[in-house]
Design a binder for these strands. Structure first.
Lengths: 239, 239
DNA sequence: TTGCGCCTCCCCATATCTGGGGAGTAGATA
DNA sequence: TATCTACTCCCCAGATATGGGGAGGCGCAA
């Protein structure tokens, strides 16, 4: 269990020095401490800007971006649809993805096994923390049992640090929606039409319209759909 | 650090026996191990169904539900808007919430300090893991420094167990959206009108409509706003 | 080869939403 | 007490979205 102590030390350093460079050097240190081939932290902030640090080779990163593999990467689509930590073996490897993508990845030095921890924030933040190694199935099982918890924790700590870099921390004070406005957004997000909502809430359709317009205004939205999307993003409504 | 070992043991038991009762007994064991007054895990699944386990008194839970405090609880609204772990002192305690809510809570045995770890899933799952105790500010600072990481980990483990209980694990195979359909949903969620999107994507407005209708159908949505909400919920689009 | 899914285009009519105005009540806040 | 916000209601006209029909080309897979 001295390994654990070593991980703790590295993470403490990360927490003390919140810079992108610190995450980068920590990635390398953690990779060695864990004994894996690669360790990557990839992060999309609320403006859609992407950041990344990790131990993939520059060639692979360039190739990945160039081919827009983001769109076909099963790791990405898998992690977008669930948010538990994910063993790459559980993924849906279509023949295309397997041939065109995974084999190519291995030629760039990636291992055959992977484990990714997805994290999602309410404003579209999405982070992915991945370790990658060349192992057989049994060895990988053992690795995950031994280190799964630590990986989740590392992902959280990286994530907290990443949040601090966020440029658009939206210090602009947000207009809180009134209860009725929230209610309207919630009903809209469930697919009800204005007429239905009005009758369900026992108010006139026009009154409902006032709420929707109020919500649109307070959320800075261009139309109702936009307002609902923002309400969801702000956590006022659960989708 | 024997405390840490004790936490580990309790968590291992939780992982071995994934039942709601196990979470309940673990809550009590963890409360004692951590030396706090209360420990609660509250969880909303993708259907909107709510579950909870923890050490609050039944009277307080009843009172809370009866008064629909969910709507005014600053802990809830705070955690819905950010997804980092949250010290209750950072919350926005309006006079009303303070008077009507917090003081009443303390009369039901809650402590003055709290720390909550929010977790969000892509299908509307929302979980909140909270510890609560009666401490002065310095003691609470020390507690969080000492146990913050452990709390995050506990929240994750509770969450993974809770996911296994989910009834609507939606074994129904989901229809994947085509790239164009996803694109349409993404633009709609940003507030663009159909005409704008069509011209931005360089396609006729009617073609765009076909995509939107396709997405609506595949997402089982009643209208466009509903479809966008579901696309967001499914993680196809970031709000 | 024959499907199947995806992408692209067009017509029409109707339902629904949006934008602009105004106005009264109650409750909380200052 | 004065003011502000939230809530409720009404008018109208124009913009926008929706529903239903049909049709051709392209690529992938059984």
């Amino acid at each position: 269990m001295e390994n654990r102590q070593r991980l703790d030390d590295i993470l403490k350093e990360v927490e003390a020095s919140p810079t992108l460079e610190a995450l980068q050097t920590a990635s390398e240190a953690l990779r060695d401490a864990l004994g894996v081939d690669h360790l990557v932290y990839h992060w999309v902030d609320s403006t859609g800007e992407q950041y990344g640090c990790g131990t993939y080779s520059d060639e692979w990163v360039d190739r990945y971006l160039e081919c827009n593999y983001l769109r076909i990467d099963p790791v990405i689509s898998g992690c977008l649809q669930q948010f538990q930590p994910l063993d790459w073996r559980e993924l849906d490897w279509t023949p295309k993805a397997l041939a065109a993508f995974r084999q190519e990845a291995m030629s760039y030095g990636l291992g055959n096994q992977g484990f990714s921890v997805p994290i999602r924030g309410p404003n579209g933040q999405f982070a992915l923390f991945t370790v990658n190694a060349n192992r057989n199935d049994e060895a990988w099982d053992d690795f995950i049992v031994a280190n799964g918890h630590a990986l989740i924790l590392i992902a959280q700590i990286f994530n907290q640090k990443a949040i601090e870099f966020e440029p658009g921390r939206t210090p602009q004070q947000v207009q809180p929606l009134s209860p009725r406005e929230v209610e309207a957004m919630a009903m809209l997000s469930k697919g009800y039409s204005r007429a239905q909502i009005a009758s369900l809430l026992n108010i006139s359709e026009h009154t409902l319209r006032v709420y929707i317009e109020g919500a649109r205004f307070k959320l800075g939205a261009l139309n109702t759909t936009h307002a609902v999307a923002r309400a969801i993003g702000r956590g006022l409504v659960t989708p």
